[in-house]
């Protein structure tokens, strides 16, 4: 459990960090919850690690004009506990509270998690359901990518060489909407075997708005667009969730077969929608 030799930089400013990252093959370290174990197993052997831990101004949660911004090095625990997130974006706080265990939540960061893009990570389901955006910066660029265009494949995102995730941008949830994140946690890793995030708005007792993000089931998190449309069009929850996963190839491993994952996605979607519905006013 000893990593290979590597160069380590702990830049003191974002500019310095971006310059370092622009300089060639660099691995960016945030909370280290994925990178460090991989390095200790020597599955990862980066030559140069750039630690964002000492870069000021990347750890924040702010709101202005209905837009919430969360700095990349904000930890899961900070997100879970922040009154601002709990009040204005409670789906994300709920998802954060279900990540790994308390030690992981204390160290792991939202930027690190989404940049790593594990297909079973918890956040992507919520980011998709929230129609969030990811801000990517490099030494000479600054752009924002929709969450739906960010997660491309297992461990593959829209991040270009030289870029880092600087912040997550989320529209605040409306107070009247209901939300829920449901998951089956793997008993060893805590990863979502399947996780479903749902947002529901009601008008006149009927579902007028639905957003559903699914993680863990397929190669990357996806939005259940057909189910959303069906719900908004007055279909029953069962009718809507029956479409979830259609056209997706479900993952399979020792713990859960593709069929089971597909089934879980529907069960958890049904449960997430039902709870969100009771929470919506």
């Amino acid at each position: 459990m000893i990593p290979q030799e590597f160069e380590y930089s702990a830049p003191g400013t974002l500019q310095e960090a971006l310059q370092l990252i622009a300089g060639g093959e660099r691995k960016v370290l945030a909370g280290g919850m994925s990178l460090i174990p991989m390095m200790k197993l020597r599955l990862a052997a980066p030559e140069h690690v750039v630690d964002l831990g000492r870069v000021p101004g990347l750890n924040y949660i702010t709101e202005s004009g209905g837009t919430i911004r969360i700095g990349a090095t904000t930890t899961h625990h900070e997100i879970e506990m922040a009154p601002l997130v709990r009040g204005r974006c409670p789906l994300l706080a709920e998802a954060a509270s279900r990540i790994g265990d308390i030690q992981v939540r204390n160290r792991g960061t939202i930027g690190g998690s989404i940049a790593h893009a594990d297909p079973a990570a918890d956040y992507p389901a919520s980011l998709l359901a929230l129609e969030g955006q990811v801000r990517l910066v490099s030494a000479n660029s600054d752009r924002t990518v929709a969450a739906s265009d960010f997660f491309l494949d297992p461990f593959t995102t829209a991040i270009e060489p030289g870029e880092i995730v600087s912040e997550i941008v989320l529209p605040a949830e409306e107070g009247s909407e209901g939300y829920r994140y449901e998951k089956l946690a793997h008993p060893a890793s805590g990863f979502a075997v399947v996780g479903v995030a749902a947002r529901i708005k009601k008008t006149g007792g009927k579902i007028s708005f639905a957003r559903i993000g699914v993680t863990g089931m397929a190669a990357h998190a996806f939005r259940a667009l057909n189910a959303e449309k069906l719900l908004e069009g007055g279909a029953t929850i069962d009718e809507a969730v029956a479409t979830i996963g259609e056209g997706e190839e479900a993952n399979s491993d020792l713990y859960a077969s593709a069929d089971y994952r597909q089934h879980l996605a529907r069960v958890h979607a049904r449960r997430a929608i039902s709870v969100a519905l009771t929470r919506a006013t």
Partner: peptide, 16 residues
């Protein structure tokens, strides 16, 4: 050994 690390080998934790 496919369950050769704590990422796949599930030992009980306090919360379980």
């Amino acid at each position: 050994l496919l369950t050769g690390e704590f990422t796949d080998y599930a030992i009980p934790r306090a919360h379980m």
